[in-house]
Design a protein around this nucleic acid. Sequence first.
DNA 1: CTGAAAGCGCTTACAG
DNA 2: CTGAAAGCGCTTACAG
Lengths: 337, 337
Amino acid sequence: MNRPVSIKDLARLAGVSHSTVSRALRGSPLVAPEMTKRIRELARVNGYRASLAARSLVTRESRTIGCVVTTLADPFMAEVVTGIESVANRNGYSVLLANSNADSRRELDVVHTLQQHRVDGVVTAASRVGAHYDQALAESQIPLVLINDQQSAGYVHSVSIDNAAAAALLMRHLTGLGHTRIAYIGDARGGCSDRQRLAGYRAALRAARLRYPPEYVEHGDSTPAGGALAMSRLLHLRRPPTAVFCYNDRTALGVLAAIRKAGLQVPRDVSVVGFDDLDLASYTDPPLTTLRQPMRIMGQIAFEILLGLMRGDAAERVVTVQGELIVRQSTAPLRQA
Amino acid sequence: MNRPVSIKDLARLAGVSHSTVSRALRGSPLVAPEMTKRIRELARVNGYRASLAARSLVTRESRTIGCVVTTLADPFMAEVVTGIESVANRNGYSVLLANSNADSRRELDVVHTLQQHRVDGVVTAASRVGAHYDQALAESQIPLVLINDQQSAGYVHSVSIDNAAAAALLMRHLTGLGHTRIAYIGDARGGCSDRQRLAGYRAALRAARLRYPPEYVEHGDSTPAGGALAMSRLLHLRRPPTAVFCYNDRTALGVLAAIRKAGLQVPRDVSVVGFDDLDLASYTDPPLTTLRQPMRIMGQIAFEILLGLMRGDAAERVVTVQGELIVRQSTAPLRQA
DNA sequence: CTGAAAGCGCTTACAG
DNA sequence: CTGAAAGCGCTTACAG
């Protein structure tokens, strides 16, 4: 068991005190230039790596943030995490990954673990954050930034897609094509994002003076399987919809498959729109009309807000980003019956 | 700036020494049962969370592992990471996520960061680990487990899919359907996995006494876009293949789209097989015949091997897992011309 | 410019 | 059963 070389080892080698070594390594102007040089060379040669644990014990900052997601299986999450991680690293922060699995017991465990690590901040892209969750975090004064979820109690920092505008864009696209029987397939655990997209759907129907049967609102679970199931229910209606607004692209993928399976064609018989613009959206059959979320950017912004908070910004920050409608081939004008 | 409550605070409240508090919290049999109870209650009420930094300074273990991936955008990686994370947590370990982006400068940074964190071990699902990478890790004696990549120098611990057997399974499926003109679309940065799958492809052709033009070996980059591009090149050949073995499902997704775009049909004109069995594989058009990798399990096994190493197992562990051929509708008997 | 000292929050022999 | 002491590897006032 070789223990890592410490500041004391370096001090012995250089024939100085460990205080001087510490200063030299940190680039203190107090130590003589050549001494600094000599010590750094020694550090390099001996493969010295400062112990973050020791350092953070005195500086009271861990230079580590927690990143909590309900699942990594969803590419949306993976992209967001990638965005967070890249800026975090660039700013000298490491990210501790925590998967809550949307299980509230696990969520509490996660908070405790993050507290033990004394993370300097947390960003969560969990769409449904348990109530006690942020409470525990709030008590420990750990800054928190939410992504696509503003429903938190004590905290108010977040970055979200403008769901209302996004839903309006997608719905206007569909109504503009002449569709009047439009369904919505949400994510039952999609939390705030689901509610806002659904609200946008309803608002758009009202604006277009369209009525819709309650059966037109279905809920999946953000997986292709969930989307396929929900769509097959819609297709069994006596008057099936001619267009479907899906909570996300993965749902839409399942929807496309269900429609094919029923012997119908997209967009001839049914128009379908997704949400996210994952890279697979360009390669579905047909390529998917969807709403692009700037996923990585959202992750980056989240970290930047967090960075501000960690540096002591008091100001509340709620950033809303705009999505972009990407029209591909899964939508077409309503066929005249 | 409320500092977190420490063991000393608890000691003051309980009117005992902090040594006793430490023992009580750790469940030492040395301390009186009711004292233990009282102290724990105090800890609970005051929201005490032990500082891992302080603890690890003395125990010399951080209870943290590093998880290095080239990209999280690939669901294969995301699944593997999910598997790692779940067992790690169950065993009291946290995971520090590091994205190398297959950039060798970044890779070194990543190693340094992990060293500073004094991680107890590292698992990497990076398909191409830079040479200096594991060298640096080896010098610091940090146990390392590789996933789907055994090309490391000093280290020999890994869990991998049996690429040879997998390729044989897929190829036998295709040759069994009568195909003789079979192409391979790999991943130029797929490292060892790509080489082994390609070798399996070649071996299968030899076994079936089939010759193949060198143009039948193409390389994408594990994205749908890369797959589509490679397939369009294959379709421009004077004698295009009638079957394609793709490095992974994402590549296959692009391949399916390229074939459709060329006005051909799968599997009527071209049979396509993927690799991984991502959840989207059941929802492509047509549903994809592929080779299922037990992704989460592989992540779990990797952590378990790492756990053994962290506990001091000297034995080298190289685990090979078997894939499973999943036949869906993207493959069909060769049409007689 | 350098060193000795104190301290961050823990754990754990060593006494009692 | 409990406490005082030492120490993990750092940083940083305080002296000199």
